[in-house]
């Protein structure tokens, strides 16, 4: 039997006049799913509803088949890393994690063991006895991730988890997320920096203005948008000739010359464009040294879908 981990159906959350979620409907499968959207898209609102911290005004949201508004039952299964730098400043990381693990219902000895493991995962064991109030943003981010991991939940909700981390820290955490997913747990990872998510997973949900605008495999999403304007960057020693030829094609809507050896064309029918380009290359009249579909980049996909 197959079933999604999280299901949102017409989920709506209002903040006064502002819509945090606007009929958000999406399914999040197992493994790692990226939640992509610009700042203010509603990603944090979505996570907070799942963590039982916000109440929906309309629609439903379920997590592992349970209503999200039943935090006592659901929160055993959820590890939530909020975006805001929420910590108990007067504690050390060890005290902080142990307190939260005790709130999760673990006995003192078990809490201590899990605390050590989680702090080790995020490389914070050397500073486990320092006060959190003196921690840098990156260290605080790692503490937040540790508290989300420590009770080994089935589902991890990570709201912009890579914010403020140095490059090495990012790589280590990306590897850690991969290991967690391989262990059979599920992660929903939000970001507005698209290449981060691209390195983690092909499964994505894209949202903007509180609505899901696409979901599924990144390549499937590309198929969905193939009928929309598509940008191709061509490298050539004959930019003027190539530009003139491309401009004559019916399916090319725009031609630009960003660099002396580069022509950027926009087309509404990429299949036809690539067929014509192949014929042009075979004819040998114009040399085309490089072809790069700009839309292969996740960011471009989002820009297209978000309009």
């Amino acid at each position: 039997m197959t079933r999604p981990v999280v299901v949102a159906t017409a989920a709506t959350k209002r903040y006064g006049e502002v819509l945090g979620l606007n009929g958000f409907s999406a399914e999040f499968g197992p493994g790692i799913t990226g939640l992509i959207g610009p700042n203010g898209a509603g990603k944090s609102t979505f996570f907070r509803v799942l963590a039982g911290q916000l109440h929906l005004d309309a629609g439903t949201m379920t997590l592992l088949d349970r209503p999200a508004d039943d935090p006592v039952r659901s929160n055993h299964e959820v590890g939530y890393c909020p975006e805001s730098p929420t910590l108990y400043e007067w504690m050390t990381p060890e005290e902080f994690l142990r307190t939260l693990l005790r709130l999760d219902g673990f006995e003192a000895s078990e809490a201590r063991r899990r605390c050590q493991n989680a702090l080790g995962e995020v490389d914070l064991l050397p500073v486990k006895d320092r006060r959190l109030s003196g921690f840098s943003r990156g260290m605080r981010q790692r503490v937040k991730i540790a508290q989300a991991l420590a009770h080994e939940p089935s589902v991890l909700l990570l709201d912009e988890p890579l914010n403020a981390l140095d490059p090495i820290g990012r790589v280590r955490l990306l590897e850690l997320f991969g290991r967690i997913a391989e262990a059979g747990r599920h992660l929903i990872v939000s970001s507005h920096v698209l290449y981060e998510v691209e390195r983690l997973t092909d499964q994505i949900v894209m949202m903007t203005n509180g609505r899901a605008i696409a979901q599924g495999d990144l390549h499937q999403i590309r198929d969905l948008i193939d009928s929309r304007p598509h940008t191709v960057e061509l490298t050539t020693p004959q930019p003027r000739e190539l530009g003139r030829t491309l401009a004559g094609w019916e399916h090319v809507t725009d031609v630009a010359f960003p660099r002396p050896d580069t022509v950027v064309a926009q087309t509404r029918t990429p299949d036809e464009f690539y067929r014509s380009l192949g014929e042009l290359a075979r004819s040998g009249t114009i040399a085309v040294q490089g072809v790069r579909g700009v839309d292969d980049n996740l960011e471009a996909v989002f820009r297209l879908l978000a309009g």
Partner: peptide, 28 residues
């Protein structure tokens, strides 16, 4: 478009009672 999903498993762990968790809030 949907994502095909294999089965998930819930993690079974023994937990302390709610009253103990309340006591944690108190001690904190």
């Amino acid at each position: 478009m949907t994502i095909s999903a294999p089965r998930y498993e819930l993690v079974g762990t023994s937990r302390e009672s709610r009253s103990r968790r309340v006591w944690v809030i108190t001690t904190e």
